[in-house]
Design a binder for these strands. Structure first.
Lengths: 195, 195, 195, 195
DNA sequence: AATGAATGAGCGTTCATTCAT
DNA sequence: AATGAATGAACGCTCATTCAT
């Protein structure tokens, strides 16, 4: 039992959780290391034991949260009997996860920074690719898409993501413009029309 | 003809144009008033003749650019003979405007700040409302949607916006995942399925 | 009459004088910009109106003080009737200037930083070259050195500088080990022996 | 034989050697204990087992290196048959030692700190006194200085040190301005002229 | 004897804002 | 209307020192 390592892991996690909160509340630039350290229950100096810079923390947090989001989705997702039920379950789960942990401000903070910073952009692009593949995998298990070509499915998956992202954004700024039902129906329709 | 006022209007516009560029390049926080003033061809002190704070500038710029975007859309938009052509024209125009003037980083900068700041959020919400109405107005001119109920059209318009926003975001981070054609077809299908 | 420029020049000079004092007292690294600004009667922020970095200030101060030292020497130096009087006058003047304005700690601070920093080193090397030429010029006016070869005079001048630097250093650490008289005599002797 | 003590002595020496290197490269202030510990092959915490502070290390290093320099000089120095050979041998040895172990930046770092810090100054003054006595001892073995008065020899020794220090400084900043031969000749001449 | 997590004070630098000119 | 010197509060980062392990 290595107490040092355990302690380090605990503080690392506290910093990650604290930064999740502070970045979500204030955005990357306005979140100060003082804020984050205070929230984590440490001093600013301690921060540099665990991270080499603010940017590194942001990147690590981003990787971690995007991964956690995907894991939580995959763990809880259960496809329905038909494509409609499957989509409905997926959308419901997406909406649910989206409301947890201050996800919206953090996610769009990632996006905005990705647009201007190439190394973040690369990461977000990978993340999109991941989701495209995940969605294709799910779609392929339905009778509707079983025999669709891969490039068609790719476009379809990207469209579904666009719808969800756009819904998420709209919901964050002007809640209740769209119902979950509308989103689900639209997705199902797009699937039927393309496949 | 008041020379003072004309001069003032000119420098105001120069600051607006300069800040459009600098905010798009660096984001709100990292854009310094020095950068903006230099870009505008003035000094920092001059800034405060036209704006009372950096935040005010950002808000004014946001209002102005969102308005300009809409005006440019409305001016150039010509509905086609049928809904499909109309949608295709609208999407093409949206994509075109979206690529001008470094629009993506600025637009999503607005969105991200809206999520965290209530007065900005209010503004963006109004902007969404505006677009919803504009889209409803366009849809109503087609035979497909002529007799649709208003609340159905609202959901439809919001869905179209979500698709476009989501496409815009994806395109900014990971270009060429989706074709314009896909987006148009999806919109047409959603229209058909809902109306 | 440009008040802005005058004001700027005054503050610039105050910063230069303040840094002269603070660098001499604390050395380059331990002298903080807060110290220097306080000593100058300004705040830290004002510093960056006049200098782009701490290092730039140090370099400017170094150039300025080395130049001032040389100017003061040249202005006050009057050769004697013979080489002995000339040397005696020169040494007395050197010793006098050396005791003004906290010169020793500043000068050796320059030297130490020169050893480790190439751009400073280049500057100090130029300064040495300057002094060698100045001393050669003075020596050439004496009948003893009138017809000496240039490379011999160069070695002679460098030796004289070594003696003065070495004396200056020793005097700064362990005062009164050597008399001015000794130094003068030694220089005269070296001149006689080489020329 | 105490294993603990031997181990302690070894790590002490490693820290001394490491700090010799790091102080020479970066100077006192910019040398961090992290740098030194890493160079020594330990961690920062271990440092405080052997030294109570950074300043103490610097002082111990200074004492040790000044002593080592003198020991190395005395061990290798062999007087010649006449004063000229003796001086030539001494100068050659001085120049040789001076080029070893990054001596210049360290030595002048000592000097600069001595000028500003009284306890270091005291130490350097003792060091100078030591060298004066050493040089007097050497000079007294020559027929030229055998019967010189002590205070005359003291001035002479101080002058020789000044020349060597000045040469060392000049050589460190602007190499090859003076030849070793010139320095030797000058010293011999000063000896002849004073004694 | 040695590690390494944590502190806390300090530093160089940036920048929105003010105001005399 | 415009300049630009000055402020003052932050901020990211460093580092000598402490202490539980």
């Amino acid at each position: 039992m290595n107490k040092h390592k355990i302690k380090k892991e605990i503080s690392f996690q506290k910093f990650m959780e604290a930064s999740l909160k502070v970045f979500a509340e204030k955005g990357y630039e306005k979140a100060s290391l003082d804020d984050i350290a205070r929230e984590a229950g440490y001093t600013k100096g301690a921060f540099y034991i665990h991270f080499s810079s603010k940017e590194e923390l942001f990147l690590k947090l981003m990787k971690s949260r995007l991964e956690v989001f995907k894991q939580q989705f995959l763990e809880s997702f259960t496809p329905g009997e038909n494509i409609e039920d499957t989509v409905r379950a997926g959308v419901a789960l997406f909406v649910h996860l989206t409301k947890k942990d201050n996800w919206a401000p953090l996610y769009f903070e990632f996006c905005v920074n990705a647009i201007r910073n190439d190394s973040i952009k690369k990461h977000m692009a990978d993340h999109y690719q991941d989701w495209i593949e995940t969605i294709i995998f799910i779609l392929k298990q339905s009778k509707e898409c079983k025999s669709c070509k891969d490039d068609v499915l790719k476009q379809l998956a990207a469209t579904i993501i666009a719808l969800l992202d756009g819904y998420h954004l709209q919901e964050s700024i002007s809640p209740n413009s769209m119902s979950q039902d509308t989103i689900s129906k639209s997705i199902v329709n797009v699937i039927h029309s393309i496949c």
